[in-house]
Amino acid sequence: MLEFATIPVSPLELVLLLLLFAIAAGAMGALLGLGGGVFIVPVLVVLFAVNVQTAVVASLVSVIGTSSGSAAAYVREGLSDLRVAMFLEIATVIGGISGALISVTILAGRSQLLALAFVPVVLLAAALMYRGRAVDTVPNPSPDRWADRLRLHGQYYDTARQETVEYRVTGSRPGLAISWCAGVVSGLLGIGGGLFVVPGMNSVMNVPLRVASATSNFMIGVTATAGALVYLLSGHLAVALAAPVALGTVSGSFLGARLHRTSPTQSLKLLFVVILVLTAVVMFLRGVGWLV
């Protein structure tokens, strides 16, 4: 039965509605640097009555599109730190595969548990957005042997300050651990994992925030692919659902990136915090079975 907000709809209407909401989710995600996943799964579950796992898989493949699309530009500008990315990808990929495997085996048919797993993640997103961070990087972090040996330290051109900024990477091992967690959450919940990787890279590894978010964007494609390959090849992807979702979020993210040039104001941020908290409440109610 196809329905939107409990109203029965035709396949064509459904596809158009999916496109519309996916564009909005993609634009919001790009505005906040979160990727659309945090928004798209709750929208599919709550408004379109899609099973949580089906929604997660559709979101995960669209995440590959949005991150690859925007990462391309960052990579050419030299804002993405490719060495840090490839170092951390080892961990996110292992995490992504584990997350997808947990979902198709242990959690198969247990949608409520998946819905509940969303609650802390969405609340974390809200908290991070609300708090912000005053210090970007420190000039002399504690030395890190792995970072030295793998030459993870880097530099980028800061367009706002109009100068080349150098940074020294530290905490490579806790960085790996955080990346693994991000991978698991990505494979399990269909989000990119930037939610964990960006603050982790910034506050634990001393990577400047702008580089961290460009690098995370670049990594997300590979992280999501690790989980998506498991889902796609094992026949868990609802293709006609995922197609408008992917097309919508990709075009939405281009739209959002345009708007991003004028950075989001405080009031806009507050609005998103409210939306995220409401999302958490709805997913919680679903998870405990008080809302279907």
Binding site: V15, L237, A240
Partner: peptide, 25 residues
Amino acid sequence: LAGLALLLFEPSSGFAATLTHGTPF
């Protein structure tokens, strides 16, 4: 885009299933 257009303009019984259930690969 091409796949979605084909499915939408030649509607059939199988279409709804690919909206709600996993598609075997």
